[in-house]
Design a protein around this nucleic acid. Structure first.
Lengths: 350, 350
DNA sequence: CTGAAAGCGCTTACAG
DNA sequence: CTGAAAGCGCTTACAG
């Protein structure tokens, strides 16, 4: 490893070392590393070989200083599930450290508290804001942001707004698919636990459920639809009510994993088994889903990836604004996935 | 806000703007910001006022480029609890983005798989490695690291090794305190669920439990000590065995939150209540503890803080090594805290 | 106690 | 297709 001694005695392979090794200018090495086209194929190959040989990898701090990419990004959240939030944060943090963005993190209690938090961010030189659900769906928050002339990106939005840049999955389709799968497993009496009323995703997921039921010609029994609040406890209570029906459901679809885990606990408490007596499925595939037993069948929403992508979109938007270029709001729809674990089974397994 | 237009059209307040505003050199501003002593009090005050007025905040990328602090830090983990890991990551990521460190993250299956992962890191120019438990306690991993001449920091180590730089809590004392608290609540028949045998913390926590019991003059019934594996399922099973004893425990102390949550599920399944019939307490205070119902009384281990501190220690160590200065291994013991939630109560509440 | 110079590693903008 | 120059915002090392 050819390493040079830096001003302070460290050993770091730089772009200059690679350049010298190959016999080109640092500029050419930079071009190869950044995948630019205007490099002769032969030169590119030599540079790449050298990068490999010297074990070069770029200094992110230097890059972001040079590119001026170092935006100051605000992240505003309002207590979603802890499991959701931490996965969200991991995505945000890792991408922003990659791109050299600085982070300003604030929480607030619902859309009403958002204004104060946003003003604080703005005062701290914030260039743009990333919104986690349910804030991302709040038109009130969106208005405040527009008035402040701050660009923003919404993550996991459930209500389409062509004006807003966002990263989501198709909640309707995801809920539809999961419901369809339950029906394929022979379930007919399927209970549904809704999410918090302040989140649009709650409504959209319920609509997906309804649509799949209707398509299969199954009537949704109102007694099997319960209001939840995305908490374990609310799932626990909702499931209890449903399971005390005379004609109890053979499957319960909860709008997130926390509630599904609560529903599993209720089933167990009643001396029944999951999935033998009741199938339980969740939504999100957070840490909760694979931490409980039986592990939850759920809809995987790639939260960390979505969060990371939102940082990239935010960077693009900030850069465009700085350059005075127009920025067309992007609506990125990521794929969801049905993850089948042990909490679901064909009907009548017991 | 006095903002200058940068090369690419952005508006950023820099150290120069502050300097001009105050009428001093950028150097002086830098000194004030970094809290150096050699600045006249009057000058310092003026600079600080200006920093406030212009809303200046330093560009981290520029700083880390200039200080050469940008170490490349490897993070090696071997599947601990997902909840534990995500809190750990949040701490690591936020501190490393603060300090401008680059991260190389690898996982492995136990100490045996560590060598390959570490070689990969080393090949990628890694300057030092942070170890999460149970890897942090592995003398085998420590030896590999020493042979590679890579500095490392262990997080949440349970076995004191004066040679190794680490950040921990006092697991013994923490387990002792929690047990003492249970005894104060009147519990005598207390069950204990051990953690995974490959983690030293499991042993240490058990010793703390034993010591507190002994000090209170209570004999530990071997039937009330079960082997767990830090998973929900293992807590579930262990609790089931204990609760089927003729003389069942009135309280169960699980060595982590996942197992405690599993134990709660078992109690419920048997038609009993938490905490009315059985008190259940956990350890760590991960997201799991406040996600289930009833929420868990537990020992708070400040995982994110500890992880963040480990990054700082790693940076110090790498800098010392680069400068050829000796670095005395530091052993940082953080405070734990007893968090009382709804899963515990005085004995005989029902 | 304060400042002018040089440099951190990379990229943009311009020339050829 | 390639390179020389200048600059990103900050700090170290040296003078005074």
């Amino acid at each position: 490893m050819a390493r040079k001694v830096s001003r302070r005695g460290g050993n770091i392979v730089t772009i200059h070392d690679v350049a010298r090794h190959v016999g080109v200018s640092p500029m050419t090495v930079s071009r190869v590393i950044n995948g630019e086209k205007n490099v002769r194929e032969e030169t590119r190959a030599k540079v790449l070989a050298s990068v490999e040989a010297l074990n070069y990898s770029p200094n992110l701090a230097a890059r972001s200083l040079a590119t001026q990419d170092s935006a100051r990004i605000g992240l505003l959240y309002s207590n979603p599930s802890v499991a959701f939030l931490s996965e969200f944060l991991v995505g945000i943090l890792s991408e922003s450290s990659q791109s050299g963005a600085q982070l300003l993190i604030e929480s607030c209690e619902g859309p009403e508290g958002a204004t104060a938090a946003l003003e604080k961010m703005k005062a701290n030189g914030c260039d743009g804001v990333i919104l986690s659900p349910p804030l991302s769906d709040s038109s009130r928050v969106a208005k405040v942001l527009r008035d402040m002339d701050l660009p923003f990106v919404g993550v996991a939005m459930a209500r389409p707004d062509p004006q807003v840049c966002c990263v989501t999955i198709d909640d309707f389709k995801a809920a539809f698919s999961m419901t369809k799968r339950l029906i394929e497993l022979g379930h007919q009496r399927i209970g549904f636990i809704k999410g918090h009323p302040n989140a649009y995703a709650s409504q959209t997921r319920f609509e997906g459920f309804e649509a799949a039921m209707q398509k299969a010609g199954i009537t949704v029994d109102p007694a099997l639809v319960a209001q939840g609040y995305f908490t374990y406890r609310s799932g626990f209570d909702a499931a209890e009510r449903m399971l005390n029906c005379k004609d109890r459901p053979t499957a319960i679809f909860a709008s997130n994993d926390d509630m599904a885990a609560g529903a599993v606990a209720t089933v167990h408490r009643m001396g029944l088994d999951v999935p033998d007596h009741v199938t339980i499925v969740g939504f999100d595939d957070t840490a909760m889903a694979s931490s409980v037993w039986p592990e939850l069948t759920t809809v995987r929403q790639p939260i960390a990836d979505m969060a990371a992508l939102s940082v990239r979109l935010m960077n693009d938007q900030i850069r465009a604004k700085r350059l005075g270029k127009p920025f067309e709001p992007v609506r990125e729809i990521r794929d969801f996935a049905l993850i089948e674990r042990q909490s679901s089974a064909p009907v009548g397994t017991a």
